[in-house]
Write a protein that binds this DNA or RNA. Structure first.
Lengths: 231, 231
DNA sequence: ACGACACTTCGTTCACTGACGAAGTGTGGA
DNA sequence: TCCACACTTCGTCAGTGAACGAAGTGTCGT
């Protein structure tokens, strides 16, 4: 009677470990996270987490994408979320149920290292390309400042010369895990976030990750970049 | 973030053990089985199986009904089957998928210890009550032979006096797990099965559990009891 | 009353696996 | 080139739980 009970039990046992369950539930919002972040969620060390993640990968519950020195883990597919939902249903938990596609606080704008992620970050990225302030280079995902862009960014208040003296790449498309599209990373992305915080266009949320646009920010983002901040 | 990950991981770990997974998959046909049967399926001893079943009960994946010296285990609800289906789907198993309500070979007629179970057994039980060959007694689930029944059964070829000399109960309703209704157990049930086998109304299947009605059986069951054998 | 039987509980052994820290790999930025 | 950082791999240790047999409980049939 080969009904796949063996393979299924492997998957179930992969879920059935407290640390791994915490990881999976954390990832149920469809956002990808690094192993370090997940280690904090799971409440165990990074090496242990690495082993857990490896097992979840092998069980085809998660997938991973390497980007730079980070490895982003996310759920492998909709079937995984469905199973977890089913388990919670049987468990009779009363906790807040996850509804796919629910917009949330972090979705609009948040910090990705030192630049803006979320729909605002993605719109900025797209807008700068459309305005031709930046242009694609031969290197995949990297952008160069155009003459127009250099001028316009100086007008906005960014010290372009200082940036050009640095070794870090000027601008690149950084994959955004709530939007599944690129937002602006690199020196330019960092400079824009720095400016937005200094001028109080954006305020850091208490958790240090979320970004709330201010009334001033709404106006200024639109004036300088032609970007509408609202969701 | 109390999304029930703890409770769900307990359930998942209950499924995620090979022996328990085999038990669950075996029970996915909605038929109840005893712990001894399940021990054979799981491939471990009865005491170990008892511990597994206890854990599955506590995880609310199974339910149990005690009947005499047997304890019948079955899946607790449709949600359980759905989860198992989901796990198999992710596992990518190709095995024969269970479809609820699928009629199968054992459903029509099979041996339950020494009497007939399945839809044939249930119909005989209902028919004998309707014909008033037997009647309900003060003891729940037990039946007594009526004067009419004694006479008619003798005509059929059953040695009623011999049965009445025994100490075992004459007739009782035995819960049928494919039909979820009562079939006829006790001396009378055993006598009917013995007669049906001796006269080749029914033939034992190779597995020693299933019963196949013969062409003669179709006719005779109808003639003596007014029961139509067909599904 | 007695043995047969189904099942559970108890006590023990043993393999598995989750935990950590240390060391290794690879990328990015000064 | 060099350091900082994110992450993985390796080695070791300790706790969990799955396995069995023996003994106990309760029901059935003679």
């Amino acid at each position: 009677m080969d009904t796949g009970d063996k393979a299924a039990s492997k998957i179930a046992s992969a879920i059935g470990e407290p640390a791994r369950a915490r990881i999976l539930y954390c990832l149920m919002d469809n956002r990808a996270r690094t192993s370090t972040e997940l280690a904090a969620v799971a409440g165990v060390g990074t090496s242990t987490t690495s082993a857990h993640l490896d097992r979840l990968l092998k069980a085809r519950l998660l997938k991973v994408v390497a980007q730079g020195r980070h490895r982003y883990y996310s759920v492998a597919g909709p079937g995984v979320a469905r199973i977890l939902e089913g388990l919670v249903a049987i468990a009779g938990a009363r906790g807040p149920r996850f509804v796919p596609g629910t917009p949330d606080r972090l979705r609009l704008a948040r910090i990705c290292y030192d630049h803006i992620a979320g729909s605002l970050g993605v719109r900025l990225h797209d807008r700068l390309l459309a305005l031709e302030w930046i242009s694609k280079t031969s290197t995949e995902g990297r952008y160069a400042l155009s003459a127009l862009g250099r001028e316009k960014l100086k007008e906005v208040g960014i010290d372009v010369e200082e940036l050009e003296g640095r070794r870090r790449r000027m601008a690149y498309g950084c994959l955004d895990w709530s939007e599944r599209r690129f937002h602006m990373g690199g020196l330019l992305g960092a400079a824009i976030l720095g400016l937005a915080l200094k001028r109080k266009w954006l305020a850091k949320d208490l958790d240090g990750r979320g970004l709330s646009p201010t009334a001033l920010g709404q106006k200024e983002f639109h004036r300088h970049f032609g970007v509408v901040v609202g969701a």
